[in-house]
C-alpha cells in the first residue's frame, strides 16, 4: 500500500519535472529564435534618432555602472588633488571632453545631440562615481557608447588630472567656469 503510494508520488513528480523541463526548453528555443531573428532581420532599431527603449536603456546603463564597479577595485587613487592638477585637468577637459559633456551654463557641441546614448553632462559625475571609478571610465572608455579609452593616448598623471577637475567641478559656478574658458581661449564663446 505504502509502496504503491510512493510509486504514484514519484511518477507524478517525474511527470511534473518532465513538463517543467519541456517548458524551459520551449522558452529557450523560442527565445533563441527571437534573438536570432532580431539580429538576422534587423528588428532592433539601431538608428541614433530613436533613443533606446526603457528596458534597453536600463540594461545598458546598469551593465556599464556594474562593470565599472567591478573593474575599479584595484585602482588606488590619490588621497587628494592639488590646485595644479585641477588647473591642468580643466585645460585637458576643455580640449578633450567639453564638446561632448558640456559644462556649467555651457552646452555640448550641437552635433553631440545626435549621439545615442546621449553623452551626459558631467557636472555631478564625482557624486555618482568614486575617483577610482572615474579613472577607469576615462582610461578604458565605455563600449557601445562614444566614450573613448583615453588611456591609449594619455599618461596616468594626465588621466588623474581629468579626475581632479571632475572632483572640483560641482563647486565651480557658471560664472567661474566662463572666466576659466575665457582665460584659456579668449576667442571661446558659448556655442
Amino acid at each position: 500500500m505504502l509502496a504503491a503510494a510512493r510509486a504514484y508520488v514519484a511518477a507524478r513528480w517525474r511527470g511534473l519535472a518532465g513538463a517543467f523541463a519541456a517548458g524551459v526548453a520551449a522558452v529557450g528555443v523560442v527565445g533563441g529564435v527571437l534573438g536570432l531573428a532580431t539580429v538576422a532581420f534587423g528588428l532592433y532599431d539601431t538608428t541614433a534618432t530613436n533613443p533606446h527603449g526603457r528596458v534597453a536603456a536600463w540594461a545598458l546603463h546598469h551593465t556599464f555602472i556594474n562593470s565599472v564597479r567591478r573593474r575599479s577595485g584595484d585602482v588606488a587613487g590619490p588621497p587628494g588633488f592639488t590646485a595644479a592638477q585641477v588647473a591642468a585637468g580643466f585645460d585637458q577637459y576643455a580640449a578633450d571632453c567639453a564638446m561632448c559633456h558640456g559644462g556649467p551654463g555651457v552646452d555640448r557641441a550641437r552635433w553631440v545631440r545626435q549621439l545615442e546614448p546621449s553623452p551626459p553632462f558631467v557636472i555631478d559625475s564625482a557624486r555618482q562615481f568614486t575617483p577610482a571609478q572615474l579613472f577607469v571610465i576615462l582610461r578604458d572608455g565605455v563600449k557601445m557608447s562614444a566614450m573613448p579609452a583615453w588611456g591609449e593616448t594619455r599618461t596616468t598623471a594626465e588621466l588623474w588630472n581629468y579626475v581632479a577637475f571632475l572632483e572640483a567641478l560641482p563647486r565651480i559656478s557658471p560664472a567661474e567656469y566662463a572666466a576659466m574658458r575665457h582665460a584659456r581661449d579668449p576667442a571661446e564663446r558659448e556655442h
Binding site: R54, W58, H61, E116, P119, F121, I123
Partner: peptide
Amino acid sequence: ERMGCGSCHIIPGMEN
C-alpha cells in the same frame, strides 16, 4: 532624452 536633460534633472518615467 537627446538633449541630455536627465544628467542634471530627475525625470519621472525616464530611465537614467
